[in-house]
């Protein structure tokens, strides 16, 4: 796959520098990554770029050299206004938006706040709702023993190994770990300690046709939440992915890419 173009933007009165990785050609698609940063999602993004121009922005604070950007946004309102500015700067008009986990909630909130700004919407194991009988695990404070099987259907599989792999070079190792931890810190700012900030009150505003993708073995947020999202969004349908956990796009990339592309009309 061709390396993406990396565009560096200065936004938010120059308080946020962010990289946007741009690849492919075709209709525009924005990919919003989850709590662990963009790095592990690149292969999946490349798959979407076969028939779309994919814009994959890094969440504020996760661009190299600008960790403090996370302090420039205080709350969800800031976050939504910021993404409005980002979409404008990229000259996007009603692109498809695909988001995973935290990025799924971000995509959904953006679509609810500006219904005409999103063409089609894909939510992959999104967080954002809460049921007392099925509490969502706080992924930022899990032991290794609990975390791996919560994230992956096959805790010892190739996808899990790649996700947690760190380079052998000491400097690269520290950089990889720091990015992995800091990405959680940055997104965690907006969902700590419980990823329910009122999306259920906004969901009815989503006007985009919506696909909800869920790994049947998701140990962070149970698959039962797929229906919780679906019943709140007017034009939504669910695709369950077997043998996949919270990161189905990493564990079953071909299947997820196929259902997403079919939904987007690629």
């Amino acid at each position: 796959m061709a390396a993406p173009e990396v565009r560096r933007l200065s936004l938010w009165q120059d308080r946020i520098q962010t990289e946007v990785e741009i690849s492919g050609c075709g209709r525009p698609l924005v990919y919003l990554h989850g709590p662990w940063g963009l790095a592990s999602d690149r292969a999946f993004v490349a798959g979407l770029a076969d028939d779309h121009t994919v814009y994959a922005p890094k969440f504020p604070g996760t661009t190299h050299g600008n960790p403090d950007a996370v302090h420039a946004l205080d709350n969800w309102f800031d976050l939504i206004v910021y993404h409005g500015e980002l979409f404008d700067r990229l000259e996007l008009s009603a692109p498809a938006v695909v988001g995973h986990s935290f990025g799924g909630l971000l995509a959904a909130e953006f679509a609810a706040s500006a219904p005409k700004s999103v063409g089609r919407l894909v939510l992959i194991d999104p967080v954002g709702l809460w049921r007392d009988d099925a509490p969502v695990k706080n992924w930022m404070i899990l032991s290794d023993k609990v975390r791996r099987p919560s994230l992956f259907a096959d805790a010892d599989g190739e996808a899990a190994r790649r996700f947690f792999d760190v380079p052998s070079d000491p400097a690269e190792r520290i950089d990889t770990l720091a990015q992995f931890i800091w990405a959680q810190a940055c997104s965690g700012k907006f969902v700590w300690p419980i990823a329910d900030r009122g999306f259920s009150r906004h969901a009815h505003r989503i006007a985009s046709p919506t696909l909800i993708v869920w790994g049947t073995a998701d140990g962070i947020i149970a698959p039962t939440y797929a229906q919780e999202f679906a019943r709140r969004i007017a034009d939504a349908r669910v695709e369950l992915i077997e043998q996949a956990g919270h990161l189905p796009h990493l564990e079953r990339p071909e299947t997820v890419t196929k259902v997403v592309r079919a939904f987007l009309g690629g």
Partner: peptide, 22 residues
């Protein structure tokens, strides 16, 4: 107290995080 209750992402600022990993 295990690490996952102590090294909570965000409690150390980025520079301090890098230093602690080093």
């Amino acid at each position: 107290t295990p690490t996952y209750y102590q090294a909570i992402p965000g409690c150390l600022e980025y520079e301090a995080l890098v230093q602690s990993l080093r």
